[in-house]
């Protein structure tokens, strides 16, 4: 396989085309209306057409002009940080702020190249104490602090 000449533009362009097609498919049952009285589908589909055009342009450009190589993706770090966020989202109600916050800190610290666990433990306890005092206690936001059984 030959190396792509301009992978950033090519992939970006293809993704834009895909987004445009996806929008067309998802707005298929919305009424378009006419310019004088636009329906809910008019503006999104107008945008989809323009996005598609930009995508085609990018793909075309990528065929003729060289571009920088793609940067490597750090899938591991990405998965850890995004996973930590999602886990927090689902655990904060049942487990409460302190436990779900601790999980978030531990999971995300796994993504750091130079983690030191003792340091993180001390810092994490302080941080959780601070946010607990700030959000549910001082600002009165409706957050559970401890797990509900």
């Amino acid at each position: 396989m030959t190396r792509l000449r301009n992978p950033g533009n090519l992939i970006g362009g293809l993704l834009l085309i895909a987004l445009a097609l996806f929008t067309f498919w998802q707005t298929a049952d919305l009424e378009i209306g006419r310019a004088m009285r636009m329906g809910p589908g008019y503006f999104p589909r107008l945008l989809a057409i323009l996005i598609c055009a930009m995508g085609v342009l990018l793909v075309a450009i990528s065929a003729f002009t060289p571009g920088p190589r793609l940067e490597r993706w750090s899938w591991g770090k990405l998965a850890l940080v995004l996973g930590a966020i999602i886990v927090f989202g689902f655990t904060v109600r049942p487990l409460g702020l302190v436990l779900s916050g601790a999980i978030l800190i531990v999971l995300s610290t796994l993504a750091a190249p130079d983690s030191r666990w003792k340091e993180t433990a001390v810092f994490g306890v302080g941080l959780l104490a601070f946010v607990t005092l700030l959000f549910p206690v001082a600002l009165g936001l409706p957050l559970a602090i401890w797990p509900r059984f």
Binding site: V81, A84, I85, F88, G89, V92, R93, L97, G101, L104, I105, S108, T109, A112, P113, D114, S115, R116, E119, T120, F123, G124, L127, L128, V131, F135, L141, P142, L143
Partner: peptide, 21 residues
């Protein structure tokens, strides 16, 4: 940064969660 970013994440997550719980 290894201490800073988990703290930023905690603040972001709490901020977003409390928008609509």
């Amino acid at each position: 940064y290894r201490l800073l970013f988990p703290a930023i994440l905690v603040f972001c997550c709490i901020g977003v969660y409390t928008l609509n719980n």
